[in-house]
């Protein structure tokens, strides 16, 4: 498996000599200037998380509020809310480690992506976008991930989001900031108890 590097290679191989030439030219200068000499380049850079700002915090609070107004849909329901400036994607991995998302729905145990949101021309400019995954009430551990594959407009700032989980026994909430082109595999993990455990 060659994952990331091949992906990056595809990118740079494709854009080289294109309209991004000036950017890459800058990169060349920087590469030469950071002590590469005749040796190979250093490794990739791990960026720090995007910081919270008043605006992002307020946006996340608003999104949480909107999710609270939605009624539980039964079973295990996970909803992701985000603003119109971005296209985020919701990933929910069920107890048998199969992930429900736009490319794998439904799962073997019945998890299903009920709603997906995209950068479409018909989307209302100011509308909150809400994605939703539902599972039947299967006991075990669940994991929620959020990806930010692309922005919907010219901007590329980090995007506030909110996640709410409804299970027969519990409700969970999470506020976060998504960075474009970064997948956060774990924004939330939770356990659904078996009925026997609930009765104890």
């Amino acid at each position: 498996m060659i994952r990331s590097v091949a992906g990056m290679g595809s990118v740079f191989g494709s854009v080289f000599g294109s309209v991004f030439g000036s950017v890459l030219g800058l990169g060349t200068v920087l590469a030469m200037g950071v002590g590469c000499d005749d040796g190979p380049p250093a490794g990739p850079i791990v960026n720090p998380p995007a910081p919270w700002t008043h605006e992002r915090s307020a946006a996340a609070d608003t999104l949480i509020g909107q999710l609270r107004q939605l009624p539980p849909a039964g079973g295990v329901t996970v909803r992701l809310a985000f603003g119109p400036e971005s296209d985020l994607d919701l990933y929910v991995t069920g107890p048998f480690e199969e992930t429900v998302y736009y490319a794998n729905t439904p799962s073997r145990i019945g998890g299903e992506l009920v709603a997906d949101q995209r950068c479409t021309a018909s989307a209302l400019p100011q509308a909150t976008r809400i994605e939703e995954v539902r599972f039947p009430t299967v006991p075990g551990r669940y994991r929620v991930g959020v990806d930010y594959p692309r922005a919907c407009g010219e901007g590329r700032d980090p995007a506030a989001f909110a996640v709410r989980v409804d299970t027969p026994a519990d409700q969970l909430e999470h506020r976060g900031i998504a960075v474009r082109q970064v997948f956060e595999p774990i924004v939330l993990e939770f356990d659904v108890a078996s009925p026997e455990e609930d009765n104890r």
């Binding site: 290679g9 740079f12 191989g13 990169g27 590469a31 950071v34 190979p40 990739p44």
Partner: peptide
């Protein structure tokens, strides 16, 4: 050249 630039390109 691209390969040499990759870290910066990241």
């Amino acid at each position: 050249a691209l390969i040499r630039m990759l870290p910066v390109l990241f």
